[in-house]
Design a protein around this nucleic acid. Structure first.
Length: 570
RNA sequence: GGCGCGGUAGCUCAGUUGGUUAGAGCGAUCGACUCAUAAUCGAUAGGUCGGGAGUUCAAGUCUCCCCCACGCCA
């Protein structure tokens, strides 16, 4: 039995994620996790919320709540929505957990002991009114180059000139609007990534089966300009993991916290500790420590392309630099962006459909199917309401849902609500079994290699094969002259429903669970042998005719939703 | 400005190391069927593979230049 450790990029705590975020990491990760479990493999599937940093502090202030309280609430909200989408995390943790605090401090201590941390003194803008140091992008002022009045501290959006906050004329805080800013000296820790360039390069070079998108991004950062740069891993903030050297104080760093990008990936590991501490499992080390049983673990990470540098370089630098035997990622599946109706989905601008809104419109399966079958794998892809409507109606309602309906209703009207007796399989049945054997094999291969769109395509073809079979043998005609033969045909078709429920569950878990209920079986065993699998429901086995498995999206709904989501979320 | 990814049938996309008449689904048209959620099944039509030049016996597939869209970075 193979062992799969699977993590999804952890969503930021600040607000509800949109469908583009969902399809870029959590959803395909869930698909893979469900598939591996269905095949009988051991899976640990983890995700968390990423809670530290300035945006969280500001969002909390805006909501007029203490930041820890705000994060706790938003975590609960995201957890509930994740459940709504049937994301089957073994644990949904929090980067603000005590486990992550301790582990982050441990890594910092280990890196320091390895001589990979250096202290840097630098000048940063401090806002007296806000009582905080301001990250560059939170400072605006007049561009000294073009006179644009809302130039950001890092760059002027008007003339694109790269700026330093101190270059700005009349700088002010975008948080409070205050102009009471001053330069202050502050000390920070830097991770000496440059010293690890060769190690990282060798590691990346060994990953010959990674997507080009992934390795090219990594190589660019490794080799561009002066090569991989050292990176600040601390910040002057209140909310975060306090800077400590393991369990000891870090002289001179009192009151500072680690940078969110340092502690966030460490949460992947800490999350497994949370999983154990929550009483959901045991032995987190056998997933993460190669000296304690993680040797046979295959670790796969899922993320959007914007997260690739951190997962290919920064986090590996942390792990490798510690000198400890931690499990490194084996496969890194990255996604492009999903666009919305001709533009980008945007959290900050409230553009597009957000996860909570989607669930108010339709059950999770509809979204899961469309998103996964249109996952932005090779390039950016686009969500349009019309495509969504046509796709869902055709695939789910017509091809799969109607198949279930025609088979169960035919059986009820000509025989009864039990699997009918009589007749035997012949050439058409053998042809179907042959086709399904080939197609299921292809489906398994695509799922194993995480080719999401192709998996969906193959699954759809498997559904269509059932309709083709029915059309070929036409039990409604056979029944008139040879009821026994019609019984054999419909017996196979009824078994196909269970067969489909098992194969399709990674994509559309709820509908498949309800199909299993209708067929009154709990046998979810994967069809290793197609013929045997299609004999699972024996003669005389009772079933019920299900309610409409997938309803259609009407033109009116489609138009209404298009209109409703044309603006921005407020 | 640099880098990256794309530009293939009306739409969404596949096209392995260059090799016979460029593929799929949807949509369209025609036909079959009537068990079913006006569902299903079959057939047909639709592309000078962004433009140009080059390498080759042979290029959507390699090289160079250009155009367009998007993204990232400075």
């Amino acid at each position: 039995m193979a062992r799969h450790l699977i993590t999804s990029a952890i969503p930021y705590i600040n607000g509800i994620k949109h469908l583009g975020n969902l399809v870029g990491s959590q959803l395909p990760a869930d698909l893979f996790a469900r598939f591996q479990r269905a095949r009988g493999n051991e899976v640990l599937f983890l995700c968390s919320t990423d809670e530290h940093g300035t945006p969280a502090e500001l969002a909390a202030a805006k909501a007029d709540k203490p930041v820890d309280e705000y994060c706790a609430e938003m975590h609960a909200v995201q957890a509930r929505i994740a459940e709504g989408f049937r994301l089957s995390f073994d644990h949904f943790g929090r980067s603000s957990s005590p486990q992550n605090h301790k582990l982050t401090q441990h890594f910092a201590g280990a890196l320091d002991a390895a001589g990979l941390i250096r202290e840097v003194s630098e000048k940063q803008m401090y806002s007296n009114a806000d009582g905080r140091f301001l990250p560059d992008r939170y400072i605006e002022g007049t561009c000294p180059n073009c006179g644009f009045e809302s130039a950001r501290g890092d760059q002027c959006d008007n003339c694109t000139k790269q700026l330093d906050p101190t270059d700005l004329i009349n700088p002010y805080s975008t948080i409070s609007g205050s102009t009471d800013l001053e330069e202050r000296e502050t000390k920070h820790l830097f991770l000496c990534q440059s010293q690890m360039r060769e190690k990282l390069q060798a590691w990346i070079d060994s990953k010959t089966d990674w997507p080009l998108l992934t390795t090219s991004i990594a190589n660019k950062w490794l080799n561009d300009g002066d090569g991989l740069q050292d990176r600040g891993i601390t910040r002057d903030l209140d909310w975060g993991v306090p800077v400590m050297k393991g369990d000891d104080v870090w002289p001179g760093m009192e009151g500072k916290v680690f940078y969110v990008w340092f502690d966030a990936p460490i949460e992947y590991i800490a999350c497994s500790q949370e999983w154990v501490d929550a009483g959901k499992g045991t032995g987190w080390e056998r997933w993460w420590r190669t000296d304690k049983g993680a040797d046979d673990v295959r670790y796969t990470q899922f993320m959007g392309k914007d997260n690739v540098p951190f997962h290919t370089l920064s986090f590996p630098a942390t792990i490798l630099g510690s000198g400890e035997p931690w499990k490194m990622v084996d496969h890194l599946k990255s996604f492009n962006y999903l666009n919305y109706d001709g533009g980008q989905f945007s959290t900050s601008r409230g553009r597009g459909v957000f996860m909570d809104q989607a669930l108010e419109l339709l059950p999770a399966d509809y979204w899961r199917w469309w998103l996964l079958s249109h996952a932005p794998e090779s390039s950016d892809s686009e969500f349009t309401w019309e495509n969504f409507q046509v796709s869902v109606n055709k695939d789910l309602a017509d091809v799969l849902g109607n198949f279930v309906s025609r088979v169960t209703k035919f059986c009820r009207s000509k025989f009864s609500e039990t699997v009918p007796e009589g007749g035997s399989w012949d050439a058409p049945e053998q042809a179907l079994i042959d086709e399904l054997t080939t197609r299921v094999g292809a489906y398994e291969t695509y799922m194993e290699t995480m080719e999401v769109r192709k998996s969906a395509q193959e699954l759809r073809a498997i559904w269509a094969a059932g309709n083709e079979y029915l059309q070929t043998v036409a039990p409604w005609t056979t029944f008139k002259t040879d009821p026994d033969q019609a019984a054999a045909q419909i017996r196979l078709a009824l078994n196909l429903i269970r067969f489909y429920a098992v194969l399709s569950a990674p994509f559309i878990p709820d509908a498949c669970a309800s199909l299993m209920d209708s067929m009154q079986t709990s046998d979810t065993s994967w069809p290793e042998d197609i013929q045997k699998s299609l004999e699972t429901l024996p003669v005389g086995h009772a079933f019920t005719v299900p309610e409409v498995t997938f309803r259609k999206i009407t033109d009116d709904e489609c138009a209404e939703w298009q209109e409703r989501f044309s603006g921005v979320r407020t």
